[in-house]
């Protein structure tokens, strides 16, 4: 009798506890919904006709080539282009270096050196972005200035597109590398043995077989890296220079990214200048989504053609 009671009690406890778990999961998951709803709601409000601080024209906002809060002009068209340019340039620098480093760590380096490189990459990954910002403001800007003066170009204290690109490349390097490492190490041994047996050298196998087989994982790393490059705020804002108009294509010109716009000059917590940051946040989220989809599409395409071969 007593036994039956405890079983019943246990069953009730089981039910209650599992519902608590579910509730907590709902809370965690609901934040994604909350983020989407609030960014949409707040981000779109400056374009609604009943907006209290003076309506902003949506098209002017999206395609504008001037961002002058002091004159009430909020155009982010050029900022979008700047963001894409800086992130993709950073990716094009970091991607080859990352992949080659990953290949080195997994296949080429002697055991000791490989362990050492893993530690280096881990260290680079664990450095907070604010520390990279200090480094960028202190060293990368000087580096840019030196290059600029060698080429006879003027920079604004080194704050420039080039500085942003170098900074972002450094910051996304460990992300891409560590994912590439795990995808390269999971390439099947049989494939490599087959290649070697067919008379390919070790190096040829590494570059032609291993990298090709690991490319889907490597692409996944690139996607994560680009996401990080888009979302990086504090460090970038220290070296971007926040140009008021654009777009910027010159490497030694100052630039302005979506995140640096969102974070710079934040003083009041109301008014158009504040609300527009949500609109920019919305644009940022949409760009991240689109690039993710685009790169995922490429990734799957690349994966498929490989399978056909």
């Amino acid at each position: 009798m007593n036994n039956l009671k405890t079983t019943k009690l246990n069953k009730i406890i089981d039910k209650v506890v599992s519902n608590i778990y579910l509730l907590m999961t709902l809370i965690s998951a609901s934040f994604m919904l909350i983020i989407i709803i609030f960014i949409l709601f707040k981000g779109l409000s400056p374009f609604m006709s009943n907006y209290q601080y003076g309506v902003v024209n949506f098209l002017d906002f999206l395609f504008g080539t001037q961002y002058r809060p002091d004159m009430g002009i909020y155009g982010v068209g050029f900022i979008i282009i700047n963001t894409l340019v800086s992130a993709l340039l950073a990716l094009s620098i970091a991607f080859p270096i990352s992949v080659l480093t990953a290949l080195f760590v997994v296949k080429i380096a002697p055991q000791r050196l490989s362990e050492f490189m893993k530690v280096v990459i881990d260290l680079l990954a664990s450095i907070p972005s604010i520390v990279y910002g200090v480094f960028a403001a202190g060293i990368i800007t000087k580096f840019t200035m030196t290059i600029a003066s060698m080429l006879g170009v003027q920079t604004y204290g080194g704050t420039s597109l080039l500085s942003v690109v170098i900074l972002l490349a450094i910051m996304i390097f460990p992300t891409i590398t560590s994912i590439s490492i795990s995808s390269i190490s999971s390439v099947s041994e049989d494939l490599q043995h087959a290649s070697l047996a067919l008379g390919a050298t070790k190096v040829q196998t590494n570059f032609k077989v291993v990298l090709l087989s690991a490319k889907q994982g490597i692409f996944a790393g690139a996607i994560l890296g680009v996401g990080r490059a888009f979302g990086e705020a504090t460090a970038v804002s220290m070296v971007a220079g926040n140009k008021m108009f654009g777009p910027t294509f010159g490497l030694f010109n100052t630039t302005r990214t979506l995140t640096s716009t969102m974070i710079a000059g934040l003083k009041e917590t109301s008014g158009l200048d504040y609300d527009i940051r949500f609109s920019i946040g919305l644009v940022l989220l949409i760009i991240i989504l689109i690039t993710n989809f685009g790169l995922n599409f490429i990734k799957n395409k690349v994966g498929k053609t490989h399978e056909k071969n």
Partner: peptide, 13 residues
């Protein structure tokens, strides 16, 4: 997906 949201967006929210 939450893991992929940039931290500055978390600030806004």
């Amino acid at each position: 997906t939450l893991a992929g949201v940039p931290s500055i967006i978390y600030g806004l929210v």
